[in-house]
Simulated scan of single mutants.
Amino acid sequence: MRKIDRKQFLKQSGWGIAGLSFIDWLEPVEAAEQVAEWQRVRSYKPPEIAQDEQFWQTIRKQFSQDDQLINLNNGAVSPQPKPVQNALIENYRQANRQPSYYYQMKLEEQRDALRASLAEEIGSNPEEVAINRNATEGLNTIIFGLPLERGDEVVVSNYDYPYMLNAWRQRQKRDGIKLNPVALQMLVEDEEAIVQKFANAITARTKVVHITHMINWTGQILPAKKITEMAHEKGCEVIVDAAHALGHFAHSFAAIGCDYYAASLHKWMCAPFGTGMLAVKNDKIAKLWPLLSSYDPKSDDIRKFEISRSRL
């Protein structure tokens, strides 16, 4: 099991004055306070900042607080810092000032810039990344978009997210596929034992292996790369649910080697509510049906999976 403390957070977030682009979205007094505080600790090393309570109190001020509630659940949605809230509100106002122009022109430009940033975050090609509303939408796109036939088998586990299991059960009822569930016992430290459990569930009819990279109930991190390598050796495609993994530890879509990947940005990443991403290997895009209708559902353009323009 791995934990992230303040020291690790600072290292992974690339802290420093270069990270102050959010200042533009703060009130003048708050902005001045933030700049002064970051300047004060500029020469500090991560271990020093991790113990600096004054610094963390300044960070805390950037989140809206309800004094009547202690939030212990960031797994569903995480609070957005004030700069994110302010930017979201201003963009909403801009959309109302220039409705059609904003959605048909400006939003598309911003979408591709965001696509590039998300691709960099997960170590992927921008043309493999689609922007959507959450991991559930991304995973449902994959689950309902794969061209599976009656009798094809899919490996899942008892710790997969319920909505994902429900989606697979719907395909089971509708299309006659078979689910082979892996019964995981948590917490298990032996990665090879976990890989073997998945391997034991694969048969000659298995087409897909579904992996939850970080289990939401326990925080257990499954060896996604090792499971993927094993599954590929047996001729199976691999889906990785990274809803919680993305915000907790560094990993790469390319390094894992999976075929399909989805994550939520409004969880530990503190992005606006209703934001997520889907990643699909280039050579898999064309065969995957979009969840919503598309002008060319068999296109190899990742944008066919996005809800944009008039479909908003």
Rank of each mutant, 00 (worst) to 15 (best):
G151I: 03
Y161I: 15
D190R: 06
L148K: 10
L146R: 12
D175C: 07
D175R: 10
E153G: 05
L165P: 00
D175Q: 15
L165E: 05
E192Q: 15
I194C: 08
I143C: 09
G145F: 07
D152I: 13
Y159P: 02
G151R: 10
L146M: 12
L148H: 06
G151W: 14
R150G: 09
Q170E: 11
P181R: 08
Y161A: 11
W168V: 00
Q185A: 14
K178D: 07
R171D: 01
V182Q: 13
E189W: 09
L148P: 06
Q172C: 04
F144L: 12
L184T: 10
L179T: 07
R169K: 14
E149V: 12
M164H: 00
D175K: 09
L146C: 10
Q172L: 09
I142Q: 00
K173V: 07
K178N: 06
A193E: 14
Q170D: 04
L146K: 09
R174S: 15
P162W: 01
I142C: 01
E149N: 15
Q185M: 07
V195K: 15
D175F: 03
D175A: 09
V156T: 14
D190F: 06
R171T: 03
S157K: 08
V182H: 13
E189S: 11
V154K: 01
L148N: 08
K173L: 05
L148A: 05
F144Q: 07
Y161K: 09
M164C: 06
E153R: 15
E191H: 14
L165N: 09
P162V: 10
P147V: 11
R169T: 02
I142K: 01
N166W: 05
F144G: 02
V195E: 12
E149S: 15
N166T: 10
G145D: 15
Y161M: 09
E192V: 11
I142A: 02
K173F: 00
R171S: 08
Y159M: 07
A183C: 03
V156E: 08
N166C: 07
D175T: 02
I177H: 02
E149C: 13
P147S: 06
P147F: 07
D152G: 05
P162C: 06
E153T: 12
Y163L: 13
V155C: 14
V155D: 13
P181C: 10
R169E: 07
P162H: 00
V156G: 11
P162A: 12
A193C: 03
P147E: 02
L148F: 07
N158V: 05
P147N: 05
I194N: 07
E191W: 13
Y163N: 02
M164D: 01
A193I: 00
P162I: 00
V188W: 02
L146G: 02
L165R: 01
E149D: 14
Y159S: 02
L148S: 04
P181A: 04
K173T: 03
A183T: 15
D190Y: 04
Q185K: 05
E189Y: 14
D152Q: 09
D190C: 03
R150W: 01
Q170S: 11
F144A: 08
P147H: 08
E149T: 15
E191D: 14
E191F: 04
P181D: 14
I177Y: 00
I194M: 13
M186V: 00
G145I: 11
E191R: 04
